[in-house]
Each structure stands twice: as C-alpha cells, then as structure tokens.
Amino acid sequence: MDYQLDFVGLFPYYKDLVSGIILTIQITILTTILGVSFGIIGAATRVGKNKFLQNLVGGFVEVVRNTPFIVQLFFIFFGLPTIGFKLTALEAGMIAMVINLGAYSTEIIRAGIEATDKGQWEAGKTLGLKWYQIFIHIILPQAFNKISPALISQCVIVMLGSSVLSQISVEELTFTANFIQSRTFLSFESYFLITGIYLIFAIVLRFVLTVVSEKLFKTKAMKEGN
C-alpha cells in the first residue's frame, strides 16, 4: 500500500465545493424553518377538535414516517409530473425534505403537547383565552421546552438526509463530492473532506438550534425553576 494522500489535487474544484456548501446551507435553513412550521400546524391539527382532519394528518404522518426518504423524493420528482406538476430537481427536493421533517416534527411536537398538563388548557380557558391563544401562548412554549432535544436531533438527521438529493442531481455537497471524485479519482480525499464538512455542519446546526430554542422558549420563570 504505497498510497499518497493528495488533498492539493482537490484545490482546482474549490468553486464547486463552495457552491455545494452554500446550497446545502440554504436547503438546511429553509427546510428547518418550513418543516418545523409544518410540524406546528400538523400538531395543532392532531390535538385539535376536528376528527376528520386529525385522522387525515395522522395517516399522512404514518405514510411519511414508514417509507424511505428516497422513495418519497422519487414520488415527488418522477411521480408528480405525470399528474401535471412540473418541478425542478431542487424544488422537488425541497418539497420532499419539508414534508419529511414536517411529518416527523408533527409527531414530536404532538408528544410534547400531550405531555403538557391538561390543567394548562383549562387555566387558559378560565382566563377567557381563545383556543389558538392558549395553544400559541401557553401550550406551545412548554411543549417545545420539553421536546427541543428530540426536535433538534430530527433537524440534524434531516440536514444529513439532504445528501440524498444528490440522487436527483441537486448540486449539493454529496453531489459535489461525487463530481470531484469522478473527475480527479481522488475518491478518498474528496469523501474525507465532505465528511468533515458534514460533521461540522451537524455540530454547528445542533449548537445554533439549541441556542435558538433556549432564547425562544425558555421563559425567565422556567430558567429559575430549573
């Protein structure tokens, strides 16, 4: 084994790399925001009063959680055009990721809401608040406080899942790695580099989301209480 590592050989492709990094960051930010919002709406429906919508969202969540992400992606990218929705690879990828994170976070947030004391709903009602006011101002912050570690992990998993978009030729990080290694034959170096970047992404995303959730959902009383 007289193999010499050659990271310098990757240098001519730094522009592809940077654009791959930027695209992955953009996808991650957009997916996290849209997906969690989707999850909040989904969870609100799941605990809401309408039985029909409850079952509809529940069934949808089960289908998404029990099928592979890549099959969902193929369904949106190859399947939807046959019924008249033409999408670019990036659009299809974004929709698939938002739906995926949305379904998982619906389930996580719902668990948080159900773990919140029923008395909180009743207390809100006695104060004369409307359902949505109780949900937004009382229940949701407490629920988020309980489930933020699980939700953050899910966001990181979905961020790592963005690598799958390379299969429908979205030019994100993994696509870039494949592109570079097929051009240079420096397969170990390119994958090693990309792996390092994903690790950094995972750590940074976890850190940022932890800070955000502390800032947003930990009230002063909660901090003192804990």
Partner: peptide, 19 residues
C-alpha cells in the same frame, strides 16, 4: 451517526472496495 448514511455507502463502495 453524524455522517450522512449515503456518504458512508458511497465511501465504502467508491473508496474502499474499488481500491
């Protein structure tokens, strides 16, 4: 657990087994 599974599959296939 913090490396995308797809990247790990590609790594084993393209780097280890192809070499």
């Amino acid at each position: 657990r913090n490396i995308p599974i797809l990247l790990q599959i590609l790594f084993w296939y393209n780097v280890v087994l192809k070499s």
